[in-house]
Each structure stands twice: as C-alpha cells, then as structure tokens.
C-alpha cells in the first residue's frame, strides 16, 4: 500500500503550495506584503507541472485502471476524477492568464487573480478529498497482492516517465527553492525568487 502513501504525500505537497499562495494573497491584499511575481509564477508552475508530470499519471494509469478492472464500485467517482484530470490544462491556463494580467499591472488584476486562485484551490481541494475519501479506500478494499505489486512497479517507472529520454524537472529541488524564497512565517524569507 506504499502507493497510497505516495499519493497522499503528493497531495500534501500540493496542499502546502496552495496554502502558501493563499497566505501571500491575503497579506498582499492587506498591504503587508509586496508581490513577488516570480515566486507566484513558480508556485503556479509547480501546481501545474507536478500533478501533470508526476501525480495524475500515477493515479490514472495504475491506480484507477486497476480498480476499474476489479470492481464497479466507485465507477462514478473515478469517471469524474478522470474527467477532471483531463481538464487540467484549461484550468491552469486560466490561472496563468490571471497571474499574467495581475503582473502586467491590470487595474483589476489582483482581485481577478485572487478569484481565479480561489476557484482553482477549491476545485483542487474537492478533487483530492474525493480521491482520499472515496477512491483510495476502495483500492484498500479491493486490491490483491498482485495489484499492489503492479501499481508499485508502475509508480517506479513513472519516476522517469519518458524512460530516461527526457529531462524531467527536479521537483524536490524546486520545492526547497520555493520554501527558501517564500516570506515568513510560511517560508524562510530568502526572496525574491530567482528563476534558474
């Protein structure tokens, strides 16, 4: 069941970034913090790239596929989750566009980005809750020893999704950079963020 722990751990990373962006927006809104647009952009990028490259493929290709083969239970929830995964690109584009408007000094830019972010965060929280409350427990219930092994093997491959032919991002390193640059108390206050 290592696989489920990995999924939940990845959810924690995403939730931590969502928490950080929400905190910074609150402080900016109250005039206590100057926006660090590079940092915001890097966090939005993380919210896009990490699930797309690392997280959702594990769920769709291995966990959900196996579960569907075992049972009809949870079929509606899985269908919804898969659909939501497929819509990832459109959702993140909306968030990126709003951030771009905000960074280029649009009059309504801050409020519009705040709304876009709240939509995104709400969506993601519900998405992760549905997985953790309904679908992961079904894996626990229905998976056989063989299923767990197959999923674990799939997860190992996923750490190098293109079989070594493509540079994938070093998310651990990026995460540490985000923590270092984020303002206290959510980060270490070493900003502004510098792109690689």
């Amino acid at each position: 069941m290592e696989a489920l722990r990995i999924i939940e751990d990845e959810h924690q990373s995403l939730a931590a970034i969502l928490h950080a962006v929400r905190y910074m927006l609150k402080e900016i809104g109250q005039g206590k913090l100057q926006p660090d647009f590079r940092l915001l952009r890097a966090m939005v990028h993380y919210l896009d790239a990490y699930p797309e490259q690392r997280h959702h493929p594990k769920e769709d290709q291995y966990l959900f596929a196996r579960l569907k083969a075992r049972t009809n239970e949870g079929a509606d929830a899985i269908a919804r989750l898969e659909q939501e995964h497929a819509g990832g690109e459109a959702r993140i584009k909306a968030l990126e566009a709003a951030l771009h408007q905000y960074a280029s000094g649009d009059r309504d830019g801050f409020d519009a980005f705040g709304r876009a972010f709240e939509n995104f965060a709400d969506f993601y929280r519900n998405h992760m809750l549905l997985e953790e409350r309904e679908v992961l427990p079904l894996c626990r219930k229905h998976f056989t020893e063989e299923d767990w092994e197959a999923v674990a093997a799939g997860f190992r491959d996923n750490n190098d999704p293109m079989g070594g032919t493509r540079e994938t991002e070093d998310f651990r390193r990026i995460f540490s950079k985000l923590v270092a640059a984020a303002p206290p108390p959510i980060g270490l206050g070493g900003g502004p963020y510098e792109d690689d």
Binding site: A16, V179, I186, G187
Partner: peptide
C-alpha cells in the same frame, strides 16, 4: 506551530 510549506521541508 509551523506552516505546511515549512513542515514539508523540515521532514525532508
């Protein structure tokens, strides 16, 4: 008493 972002880093 630490924020989620730092907690993850401490555990790393």
């Amino acid at each position: 008493g630490l924020a989620p972002l730092i907690v993850r880093e401490i555990f790393r």
